[in-house]
Design a protein around this nucleic acid. Structure first.
Lengths: 241, 241
DNA sequence: ACGCGTCTGTTCGATGTCGAACATAGCATG
DNA sequence: CATGCTATGTTCGACATCGAACAGACGCGT
């Protein structure tokens, strides 16, 4: 049951035929996603999946020594733990809120059953799986080949797209976790971007000042991912474009 | 049509019910995979998929500046460009032979059609998609957080598993492409591993001398990936174990 | 207002990796 | 068996990132 009122903006849901969407709607619950909240733990059982409706939810890989990196960002075009629909319900990554917002919660087993018998729903999920694959591959290469500055810009741009405002809460510490680096390295890079006039920041609040500057400094991965997204889900909804 | 005789060792095919396998067999052609050969190009159309029967085929991401990294390795448990079954037939990565061997070639459209109507076949593919997702995520994190030495050991172990011999052809240059680094860095690392007594190498031929040593020096990713593989495909066939 | 704990931002020496140049071995060709 | 070509392996200075310690700002309870 959708307990609060909020228009559906998730692109996967919007792409469904009315009949299919109507069958899912009564089974979904709208929830708020709070900044930094962990939605699912590695190796935990996945009971529910979440269509992102506002904000961003991240897939974060945590290594044995405790260090971590983001390996994928799920925005309005996606759903959490989509691979839990492949017959195994154990989570591969931590799933945590990167940019707060809202999401539509749905039972994994229900969605799984619907998927088995609804071809349109399957088409929709396949399109997203394809996107997720591509994004993972891009990030795997990006993490190896691109500098911290480039990746930092990429990350800020992606967040900005979903934040719906030029200022949003973001600590260096959190960015370090996402970029798989240390707080001190993030601070160094942030200073460079600040001096270049691209961003401002004070005590956990960052402000995007010059988006074009970030785009120039970012690696190609931001443009690649955006292009692929538009190719698969249509060029609508570029929130801050 | 299978033109040569060679027993099927691909784990995906072996896991199929006899009836399903019998339907696929006449549509598959056994081919040799030559070292370094490019099977599919980025952005190229995927006409055929290849079940790996011997050796390893790599997914390599090439960036705009020409640098590259491996983002996934496909062994006996897998099939190339599996995401091309998600409705889009454009390749996300370069697909190239890492360890020479053989593969069973099958038409993408044929496999796609079979998938739509054969539940067992779909189960099989889903299991592999799940594995591929996990491996991509692991590699994305590994590329960021682990040292060249650790990743080099991981890579050598994976190759060794599929090479079916302690010596196999491998140049520093090729390793650099795979690990997303420079030839000089690979040479440095190789020297360290050689002095530790783990490997020998001369003019493009590498020999694994002390596997246990490599396992100790490798990052956790080798063990993680192996464990996940055994969990999903059974602990059989550890070729060099 | 004070002290305390926590969160945030900065500095600096140590180090892994880069990248360009150099050095060497094998191979084909006449 | 000279010659040049290509593939392979090594060296070294430059530089981005690490990591540990230091410095500063805010919130909260009393």
């Amino acid at each position: 049951m959708v307990s609060e009122r909020e228009p559906i903006t998730n692109r996967l849901l919007l792409s469904l035929p009315p009949a299919t969407l109507a069958r899912l709607t009564p089974e979904m619950e709208l929830i708020r996603t709070e900044s930094g909240a962990v939605i699912d733990h590695v190796n935990g059982l996945i009971q529910h999946l979440y269509f992102v409706n506002r904000g961003i939810i991240s897939m974060v890989k945590v290594m044995r020594d405790g260090r971590s990196v983001e390996v994928g960002a799920i925005g309005l075009e996606g759903i959490t733990d989509s691979n839990a629909l492949f017959g195994v319900d154990v989570a591969i990554t931590e799933t945590m809120v990167q940019v707060p917002g809202s999401a539509l919660k749905i039972s994994r087993t229900f969605l799984s059953r619907e998927l088995e018998r609804d071809r349109d729903l399957r088409r929709m999920m396949e399109r997203y799986w394809r996107f997720a694959f591509g994004q993972l591959a891009q990030t795997a290469a990006c993490n190896r080949l691109h500098t911290l500055e480039e990746r930092c810009c990429r990350w800020l741009l992606t967040s900005h797209d979903s934040a719906l405002a030029d200022s949003f809460p973001l600590t260096h510490e959190f960015l370090a976790t996402m970029l798989g680096t240390t707080r001190s390295s993030v601070s160094l890079t942030a200073k460079v971007l600040h001096r270049a006039g691209y961003i401002d920041y004070v005590r956990g609040i960052i402000t995007i000042v010059d988006r074009a500057g970030l785009e120039e400094t970012s690696c190609e991965c931001y443009a690649e991912t955006t292009a692929e997204m538009n190719r698969l889900f249509g060029p609508e909804t570029q929130p801050s474009g």
